[in-house]
Design a protein around this nucleic acid. Structure first.
Lengths: 133, 133
DNA sequence: CAGCATCCAGCTTGATACTG
DNA sequence: CAGTATCAAGCTGGATGCTG
């Protein structure tokens, strides 16, 4: 009856991203954040080394990539494998959980990419009608 | 042959979110941003007024919600319908395009929520092994 | 190669006050 | 109700320099 009810009966999740205090909101932000999304998307195609990732994710800084990878690793979405060689070699790959998440994420990304013509047209219309403000 | 090839043959999209300059990256950020995601998710269940949205999206400020709605409206994902009544009444709802995007987004959100037990366990493991640094 | 530590500019955000 | 305007503050994130 309350307005906070958000789940169909009998399928209640304990976690609700719409609630400020829910930890799922933090994980969603790691996943959908600017660099998190692109990192997961890149790793979906296979494991990559640090600097390979850096090149794939156009525009990411070393610091941000490192930070992003730590968050994703801590959340159990990315696996870090360091070879004790010289020079050092570290491979990053998705965990099974990371793969599931990345699949959904990529479905979203691909759909956004495929919608960009419509989006750009919508922007033009919007800017035209209210452009002069 | 180059490392920038990211699409299967014959199915090339003109927009690639992995490229820094691609406008799809901006739209993806509107969609997946902290408030964008929760706004789209809320509107998926039906049209809502400004302050209803504000209550649904726990923690959003007036300013951020307003800003978020503008971006989503401009991208053609949200429709703003203002009734010229007094007091004013404004309803926000998803466009067909917004609906398609929100569907993918919600699939992601639900999966993250459903994975939180595993995520929390992964965090515990991570903090335990490297916690003392 | 694969990072971490530090510094700091600037953008994002939240609070507050005000308008139609 | 449905916003806009303004301002301070804090966090994000880039540049730089250094380590193993």
């Amino acid at each position: 009856m309350t307005t906070t009810e958000r789940r169909p009966e009998g399928q209640e999740f304990p976690f609700n991203v719409f609630a400020k205090a829910c930890p799922s909101r933090g994980t969603l932000e790691h996943v959908t954040g600017r660099w998190g999304a692109l990192t997961l998307g890149s790793l979906y195609e296979g494991s990559l080394r640090f600097n390979e990732l850096r090149r794939r994710v156009d525009g990411v800084s070393e610091k941000m990539l490192s930070q992003t990878l730590h968050a994703l690793e801590r959340d159990g979405l990315v696996l870090r494998e360091a070879q004790p060689t010289n020079p050092p070699r570290v491979d990053y790959e998705l965990t099974p959980l990371g793969r599931e998440v990345a699949e959904r994420l990529l479905a979203l990304i691909r759909h956004v990419e495929a919608s960009m013509d419509a989006v750009l047209q919508a922007r033009d219309r919007y800017d035209e009608t209210r452009g002069a403000r």
